[in-house]
């Protein structure tokens, strides 16, 4: 089983709607985003989409169990975000590993950051592929005696 998944990359200046459609077509929870020069810009995935489509204050609340269903319609007022560039909603944390990464480096990255994929980049920060947390789990768990 190969650890690297070859997935499409998103362009930071393309609309969010297009990114979501691409995300729906692939079987990974997030995709790498690249800038106009083709370098890694960040990660956009399910979590970033939820953050984009729900009101910003939801993230500021410690707990939202008291919010009624009627406010679910509030997301309809934010549908305008689908036409904005995906770069505005991308996770810009500098999360990536370079070719030749070790298992320990991947483990450390998954433990320290709430991401479901880690992009693998070359020396020019161009995306070669991604490692999903699920693939990493499958490979590590298969080693169990």
């Amino acid at each position: 089983m190969g650890i690297l998944s070859h997935v499409p990359t998103l362009r930071s200046d393309r609309p969010l709607r297009e990114a979501v459609e691409t995300l729906q077509e692939v079987d990974v929870p997030a995709l790498p985003v690249e800038d106009a020069r083709g370098s890694l810009y960040g990660i956009f995935g399910e979590r970033e989409f939820i953050e984009a489509i729900f009101p910003g204050y939801i993230k500021e609340l410690r707990y939202a169990g008291f919010v009624p269903h009627s406010l679910d319609v509030a997301i309809e007022r934010r549908s305008g975000c689908l036409d904005k560039p995906v770069g505005d909603y991308t996770n810009r944390e500098p999360i990536a590993v370079t070719e030749g990464f070790s298992d320990a480096e991947l483990a450390e990255t998954f433990l320290h950051h709430r991401v479901l994929i880690v992009p693998v980049v070359d020396a020019e920060r161009r995306v070669i592929g991604v490692v999903t947390r699920r693939t990493f789990f499958d490979i590590v768990s298969a080693r169990m005696p």
């Binding site: 009101p55 910003g56 204050y57 500021e60 609340l61 919010v67 009627s70 406010l71 509030a74």
Partner: peptide, 14 residues
């Protein structure tokens, strides 16, 4: 402010 503002957004949305 950190406590009041998110609730204010919520009320304004309602």
């Amino acid at each position: 402010i950190l406590l009041m503002v998110p609730i204010t957004f919520l009320l304004a949305d309602a």
